[in-house]
């Protein structure tokens, strides 16, 4: 085991969890960034306009 890992786990073996989580977070974040960079402008525009679609004019009840 590396010295870094040995020192870390000497505090508590359970510190494995934060380590796994940290790496998981890092990788997921990378995937998201890649997705965003790849996204076509037209696709992004199309999604961004979803809230702006108009409703029907409805008279009072």
């Amino acid at each position: 085991m590396s010295r870094f890992a040995a020192e870390l786990f000497a505090q508590s073996p359970a510190l494995l969890y934060p380590l796994i989580a940290l790496i998981l977070f890092f990788v997921v974040f990378l995937v998201v960034v890649i997705r965003v960079v790849r996204m076509k402008a037209s696709e992004a525009d199309q999604y961004a306009r979803i809230p702006l679609e108009e409703e029907l004019e409805v008279p009072h009840e």
């Binding site: 997705r35 996204m39 525009d45 999604y47 961004a48 809230p51 702006l52």
Partner: peptide, 10 residues
């Protein structure tokens, strides 16, 4: 529309 949809994903 929102300034950047991509930024909103990140």
């Amino acid at each position: 529309p929102v300034f950047s949809y991509r930024l909103s994903i990140v």
